[in-house]
């Protein structure tokens, strides 16, 4: 067994001390040592975006990040997006609009969207596409995801939403 190192990690505003071998990635430590199973994985090679978390507000791939390199940095996972018992407007919009089908890419996409909205209050659809271009979703065709990010942006900017649900196109 390789030697373990004691590391201090800031995750979702809490300080955790973990004893892990240094070659364990952030993805593995979150899931296997901290019980934060909301962070998913689809390739572990940086080729799908599923395991995206935020480090100091920036989307990074937890499968290619080492906890030893993240001392003092603020890590945010899907579990920390909103205070306990509450939903972030993005989570609310994703649920309402059907942006999560199988739900497996959802945590990574939510966090990437959160970083986008922190940077741009009202991103255009093209800007959302660009920001999410590193997150593969096989279920939705992205349409409902783009709509949900737009709805959340609208709600967060305080502009009253004209209609929370898409109405067009139904026979």
């Amino acid at each position: 067994m390789p030697t373990k190192t004691i590391l201090t990690l800031r995750v979702n505003g809490e300080t955790h001390e973990v004893a892990v071998p240094v070659h364990k990635t952030l993805l593995e430590v979150l899931r296997e040592d901290l019980g934060l199973i909301g962070t998913k994985h689809g390739c572990e090679l940086g080729e799908c975006g599923t395991c995206t978390v935020l480090v100091d507000g920036q989307p990074v791939l937890s499968c290619l990040a080492l906890p030893v390199e993240l001392g003092g940095r603020e890590i945010l996972t899907v579990e920390g997006m909103a205070p306990p018992g509450q939903l972030h407007p993005l989570q609310q919009a994703f649920a309402e609009l059907g942006a999560a089908q199988c739900g497996y890419c959802t945590p990574g996409i939510l966090l990437t969207s959160l970083a986008l909205l922190a940077d741009k209050r009202e991103p255009t659809r093209d800007e959302i596409r660009q920001a999410l271009s590193g997150n593969i979703c096989r279920c939705t065709g992205y349409t409902k995801i783009l709509e949900a990010v737009e709805l959340a942006a609208l709600r967060m900017s305080g502009t009253p939403s004209p209609s929370p649900l898409p109405q067009g196109g139904r026979g």
């Binding site: 940086g46 975006g49 990074v60 290619l64 920001a131 271009s133 590193g134 997150n135």
Partner: peptide, 9 residues
Amino acid sequence: VSTPPLRNM
């Protein structure tokens, strides 16, 4: 290069 999160890293 690659994707937005990879470019952050």
